[in-house]
């Protein structure tokens, strides 16, 4: 196995173009497991872990551009305000050692339906910045996941960063696992309420071949919140609205039975999580309702 360690981002992009079969590695928390168990034998590894260009984040025009090499630990420590759901999700990733190594870029590259970062990115309406010698492009997160462990990257592309709108309202993430820590999601759910644009975002993990956006549930809730004046008055929606939203969110999933849980349990849990996260989100809205609307988030 060849091991390539580019010194700069542009060297990395050039190497990937030169030989698209090289496999990028950053934290290695997914890939090294595959290699150790001989499930994958990449012809060459492209080590991105020392590229400073990927390790930063900056906030611009209301969005955070998060370098693909930023670890979960740093997200928890540095971005809990701008990206609260992603920070909650990051806290559920693996062990402290894994969080010190693992990155959102790697999570996206693996594109597992259980990837913890994916539901918050879906709910926030993020986009993935991919780059090759041919140029850079932004892939909307809703188009990024194309199948189980498959994504929309071209063979010569690398993930440079993820552009994530910063929170303009409450964001929540909830994950059910079979253990209280260090666990792959049995099912997960993310919710984002954008109080300025009056948009609802959702993301579902581990309940289908890819991470899923509950599009109809979002539209329903947006409509009800508008009709009920809830956006305007920062008023909690009626319980039946929450229940209907939760049911619709659950029905957006297409889970399977596997070693981590049964499909029926996943659907059931999803409904509970959607209902609860919506309640918590409105708790925040109500608690912070007295503050000036603009300063809220």
């Amino acid at each position: 196995m060849e091991y390539l360690r580019p010194r700069t981002w542009s060297d990395a992009v050039a190497l990937k173009t030169e030989d698209p079969s090289v496999v990028p590695i950053n934290g290695g928390t997914d890939l090294m497991v595959e290699i150790n168990f001989a499930r994958r034998r990449p012809p060459a590894l492209l080590d991105l872990s020392r590229l400073d260009e990927m390790k930063g984040w900056e906030k611009r025009n209301g969005s955070v551009e998060l370098g693909a090499g930023v670890t979960y630990t740093r997200i928890i420590e540095e971005l809990s305000t701008e990206l609260p759901a992603l920070a909650i999700a990051s806290r559920t990733v693996g062990s402290p050692q894994i969080r010190n190594r693992g990155t959102v870029g790697g999570n996206l590259a693996t594109a597992s339906p259980a990837g913890d970062a994916h539901p918050p990115l879906l709910a926030a309406g993020a986009s993935v910045r991919a780059e090759s010698m041919r140029g850079a492009r932004d892939i909307p997160i809703g188009e990024f996941f194309t199948g189980p462990k498959q994504n929309a990257l071209e063979p010569d592309e690398l993930i440079r960063s993820v552009v994530i709108p910063a929170a303009r309202g409450p964001r929540q993430f909830s994950k059910v696992g079979t253990r209280n820590a260090m666990v792959i999601a049995v099912v997960s759910f993310a919710l984002s309420l954008d109080l300025e644009e009056r948009r609802v975002g959702t993301g579902i993990g581990s309940a289908g071949p890819t991470p899923i956006e509950a599009v109809e549930a979002q539209a329903y809730l947006e409509q009800e919140l508008e009709a009920g004046g809830n956006w305007d008055h920062r008023r909690r929606p009626a319980p039946e609205v929450g229940e209907r939203f939760a049911e619709m969110a659950a029905s957006a999933a297409s889970p399977i039975d596997d070693v981590r849980g049964a499909a029926s349990y996943r659907t059931h849990a999803l409904r509970i999580m959607a209902g609860r996260t919506l309640g918590w989100a409105w708790d925040e809205v109500v608690e912070r309702g007295g503050e000036g609307r603009r300063q809220c988030w």
Partner: peptide, 15 residues
Amino acid sequence: LRRLPGGVGNTTRGE
């Protein structure tokens, strides 16, 4: 969250 069922998965606030 560590004192609640579900732990850091943020699944309940006591409900």
